[in-house]
């Protein structure tokens, strides 16, 4: 027992990087988040399947070609792509121990994400004003559910990122805040990937 305890203590004093067999708690938590992301893959997969199956059922109402204004959609795609890059730069700044740059890049990511959300809300209100609501047709029900679920994820990510920025400003870069930044950047890249598929399957294939 005493020996076990001893090795446990030294294990904590030596830096984590030298312990191969000792599972790092923060690494485990990151992996746990990864598993959550895989369940999110299944949610989005189901919504994509629904959309693909129902997209032709417009109930005599407007179809994708009548509704989608590609200018704004393309702009918001590039905005989200860029925010994926800036969240990566935030992780880089964190590993360099540069708190200011970390907060700066996270802030840039939040601004880009907020722009994306505002553009999406504008698009949705525009659609509703045109009479294309969630209850107009099966196509629009599937559309609003799929795109809206992605938008909700982005919105949640924004709230989360702002809270994390406040925590980092207060506590600095610690193993715990490090893991949180890693996790949220994974989330953000994931949302970017989901949007690429929304953009391709819903918008580009819808108008082509």
């Amino acid at each position: 027992m005493a020996q076990l305890h001893d090795s446990g203590l030294t294990g904590h004093q030596v830096s984590h990087t030298e312990h191969h067999d000792h599972p790092d708690m923060e690494e485990m938590r990151t992996f746990g988040f990864w598993i959550y992301l895989m369940t999110d893959v299944i949610i989005f997969g189901t919504l994509f399947a629904v959309y693909i199956v129902l997209q032709g059922n417009t109930n005599g109402g407007p179809g994708p070609k009548d509704l989608f204004q590609m200018g704004g959609i393309i702009a918001s795609t590039f905005i989200l792509l860029t925010s994926s890059y800036t969240s990566g730069l935030a992780v880089l700044a964190m590993h360099k121990g540069n708190k200011k740059a970390l907060l700066g890049w996270l802030g840039a990511t939040v601004l880009l994400g907020a722009t994306f959300i505002i553009m999406e809300i504008n698009e949705f209100t525009h659609l509703v004003h045109e009479g294309a609501t969630i209850s107009t047709s099966a196509f629009l029900s599937a559309f609003f559910t799929l795109v809206g679920t992605h938008g909700l994820h982005v919105l949640l990510g924004l709230v989360w990122m702002i809270a994390l920025m406040m925590q980092i400003a207060k506590r600095g870069i610690t193993p715990v805040t490090k893991r949180k930044v890693n996790v949220i950047s994974l989330f953000w890249h994931f949302l970017d990937v989901v949007w690429i598929f929304v953009f391709t399957i819903v918008y580009l294939m819808g108008v082509s």
Binding site: F31, W34, L37, V41, G45, T46, F48, A49, I52
Partner: peptide
């Protein structure tokens, strides 16, 4: 493990999407 869970997730995804279609 990350790669393995990703592969599992993608298999489920493809079964759902292609199966539904």
């Amino acid at each position: 493990y990350n790669l393995l869970t990703l592969i599992l997730g993608l298999i489920i995804l493809l079964v759902i999407v292609i199966g539904s279609m």
